[in-house]
Design a protein around this nucleic acid. Structure first.
Lengths: 173, 173
DNA sequence: GACGATTTTCAATCTGTATTGAACGCCATG
DNA sequence: CATGGCGTTCAATACAGATTGAAAATCGTC
């Protein structure tokens, strides 16, 4: 495999934790970005030097996040993997969901604090509702921006060539 | 400690990995959002039930990311911790940096691939530059939006009360 | 419906990272 | 300049989660 590609895959394996991807899954994803087209599990295992079980785990997980999809090739009972139409848009969904959760639990904490008897029982909590409200506002801002950002991406991306057509050299007939 | 606060802290400890925070550091951060004001290391260790060493590690790390700052109290040689002016803005910087790195390494991989002799040596790499370019465009989009989002946050946040004034009850004189 | 090929599952293991706790260093004070 | 109080460091440990490999399930085919 090309050295530049290899480095890309390995580095992606290290960095993509911020997207909530385990190292192996990230490497599979990176490889599939380069590879694009239908690719068997054996191929992945061999190219990335991971066990067949690991391939199964990773591909299944990537699918569940819409970062990979499976297909078949006529005249071949193997399962093949390929990039879905918009893998990157789907990549955001998870981070977005996490941030929504953080925002929600911040709000819950604030509401619980505000609901307590008016006089602050614990004086150390002075101003806590305000601080939580600020954190909530922050994550509201982040979530809102991620949502609109996702939308604009989908619009501009729809125009681009995309991963849609895979040169599925139908080797049957 | 208030049950709602405790839950907030624990849940934050679980979720904040997406912000690149270790569990303990995230718990300290969450506690400090609630607590706000000057807080000694001993207090953190006791409230969060972590070792004194762990407190030192976490606070040091949070400081390095601008999520916490230290201060002293007159008539007290202990080190106190408090929230900086804009902890949340600083929270984004790291995710932003990570995404920049992913974008850059994607570009590098693409350039390396394009630089190779015109005729694709490996036919499996057909379309790879285009796919990498799309990933690059995605991260460009993400990075750009995060940058402007950070700016707008700082503008709106500057108007809010903020963490600025801590009721540092000067217990001297 | 049995066979061969392929994928999935899962218990055991491995690995990286978080956490502890005791030793050390530092500083202010008397 | 010795002492006490804190903060930091770091080697040892604990732990969570990733990875493997072999057994089991699945699927298509004859």
């Amino acid at each position: 495999m090309d050295a530049a590609v290899e480095e890309f895959i390995e580095r992606m394996g290290m960095e993509a934790q911020c997207e909530g991807l385990a190292r192996t899954a990230a490497r599979v994803f990176a490889y599939m970005v380069v590879r694009g087209g239908p690719c068997s599990g054996d191929e992945l295992a061999e190219e990335l030097e991971i066990s067949r079980g690991g391939v199964s785990m990773s591909t299944r997980y990537l699918e569940s996040r819409g970062l990979l999809e499976r297909t078949g090739l006529p005249g071949d009972q193997k399962v093949y993997h390929q990039m879905p139409d918009d893998p990157f848009g789907n990549l955001v969904e998870t981070s977005l969901e996490r941030r929504r959760r953080i925002r929600d639990m911040t709000r819950e904490a604030r509401l619980a604090l505000e609901a307590r008897e008016g006089g602050d029982g614990d004086e150390d909590l002075e101003g806590a509702p305000e601080r939580l409200a600020r954190m909530e506002a922050f994550y509201d801002h982040v979530v809102a921006r991620m949502e609109t950002g996702l939308k604009t991406w989908k619009e501009t991306d729809g125009a681009s060539p995309g991963f849609g057509e895979h040169h599925t050299e139908r080797n049957a007939t």
